[in-house]
Design a protein around this nucleic acid. Structure first.
Lengths: 148, 148
DNA sequence: CAGTATTCCTACTTAGTTGGTAGGAAGAGT
DNA sequence: ACTCTTCCTACCAACTAAGTAGGAATACTG
């Protein structure tokens, strides 16, 4: 699996929003806006590059943005309901691609006919990991590294 | 997971060698040499590009080559003892890379500390699939697609 | 309500990798 | 000597990733 800088930044930014802004489901700490400049500084991400990533996350429905003097970004759903897989697919398309195409579209003939099933199995295995890990899981894991 | 054209071609070429040349472990059908031009034609791979891939596979110890009029390539081990993971690592280095670096070397700080474990879990999940699937498995799966 | 400050958002530029090609040098058989 | 095939190096085009700069929208302030 190749995790691009864009995907890596996206997950880290979402974690920072969840941590600094609080969950929208949690009463009292919900919906606080976090500025892009704050995210860029705390996670050491180039600001201009980060803005393009945040735009993708907003278009995918994972973030809510607000302009103006006290503007910023916030999660649209609680951190426990957003998975790493959601973030990866929002910025990078399909998880598994073969020569740039989704694994499902790989057409083989002859002796390599069974190969398509291998890529689909890989895609499924990756999905199990990233779709079962939520942002909230990662935040508590930071405090309790032994938990699994 | 991004499967590059180079990796895809490599697995298909290995399958074609295993199918056409026979296993070195099988008496009577072992060690027959297959020409690069034959592989390129049967699997529809550009010949010049394929030659560079075959060179990598030879250097990784997966193929044995022979020059001359009746030259060609053959497996160094039986097809049942060569996994898809062996081939992928021979031509593409590490299975999981984060921003071009192996997943183990990813260094995170602050709120993203738990992210490294996710990439390692993904790497392990991919490894389970590709390291348990041998070339021989794929060849018999072509004849019996229902088997798993 | 005009002005200003700060934000989101869009467009462009640059560097690196991937995919693919061409041409020969070295070795093996006839 | 001649032919065939692998082996090796250098090169080229296309694409994506990474990063930058400037413009448009919005909210606050006097």
């Amino acid at each position: 699996m190749y995790v691009s800088a864009r995907s890596d930044y996206a997950v880290r930014a979402m974690l920072a929003v969840a941590d600094a802004g609080g969950d929208p489901g949690q009463p009292g700490s919900g919906g606080e806006l976090v500025k892009a400049a704050t995210l860029a500084e705390t996670q050491d991400i180039p600001l201009s590059f980060l803005q393009g990533i945040l735009l993708d996350l907003r278009r995918a429905g994972l973030l809510h943005s607000h302009r103006g003097t006290e503007g910023g970004y916030a999660l649209t759903r609680p951190a426990a309901e957003i998975t790493v897989g959601d973030v990866l697919r929002a910025v990078g398309g399909a998880l598994t691609t073969v020569r740039g195409l989704p694994a499902q579209d790989a057409g083989y003939h002859g002796v390599a006919a069974g190969l398509r099933d291998v890529w689909l199995a890989v895609d499924g295995a990756i999905g199990v990991v990233v779709d079962r890990t939520s942002l909230a899981d990662l935040l508590v894991r930071r405090d309790h590294p032994a938990s699994h």
